[in-house]
Amino acid sequence: MRGRTDWRREAGPFLALIGLPLAWFLLLILVPLGAVWALSFAINTGVASIEVTGTLANYARTLEPTYLGILLKSLALAGLATLVSLGLGFPVALAIAFAPPPWRTPLLVAVTLPFWTNLLIRTYALMAVLRDEGLVNRVVAALAPDLAPLPLLYHDVAVVVGLVYVHLPFMVLPIFAALDRMDRSLIEASLDLGAGPLATIRHVVLPLAGPGIRAGVLLTFVPALGSYLVPDLLGGPGSQMIANVIERQFRRADDWPFGAALAFVLVYLTLLALALLAPRRPAARA
């Protein structure tokens, strides 16, 4: 194990290395976040004046039925999207991990590639497919001509589909990594001992893929909970998520203190999800 040098022994190089990133971190990461945090304890005292009074009224307002409803709805939509992603992502990761070796890398790349394309464009692409005269409804119309077009877009369903569409690679990759590391002889042993393929998945593969599944759930749920674009473009008036309400407070309603409180409720929820799901050992870092 390589020891770290105590900074006092080479103070010059140390300060030269740490100076810039530390200053940037303090001024351009901590101060902006701290400013929002301070705002969450402030009140509007005039058209453009805000006073930090230490009030908890903004947080109390986030618990009013309207906002609590949106909060719970956000959790439900993100949770549902995570479940669907897991249901889809686990078998997909399994299929890739057990595909013939020459196929593995291309398949993995194929699943990951959409992540590199623009989120806005992917959301827009989905809009075109889900519209009344979109691809899905044209297929439906061809199969069942009497049916009215399904109202897929501007609906909660579209939001969940969109969240799955956008975050699926984050679910597949860590599960694949866990399955890839797994000792295959354990599966062989289980099958040799008479367990069927499904029983083997349940009792052998699933537990071994546990850390990958946790990482996948975390990497899907956290960004899904804070999604702005997907509910904004695909959702209806009733499927707004917390990020949309935050945006409205800051850009349209001009109630920054309340928006700041909502933003920090989202931060706290994110940290809670992290605390519950984050891998215990750094080895499983995503």
């Binding site: 976040l33 400013a35 935050i246 945006e247 800051f250 700041a260 933003a263």
Partner: peptide, 18 residues
């Protein structure tokens, strides 16, 4: 880790007020 929307409003506040 912090959701993008929170960073977004943080920079909005920073460049408007701080």
């Amino acid at each position: 880790l912090v959701p993008e929307i929170c960073l977004g409003v943080a920079f909005l506040v920073f460049f408007a007020r701080v």
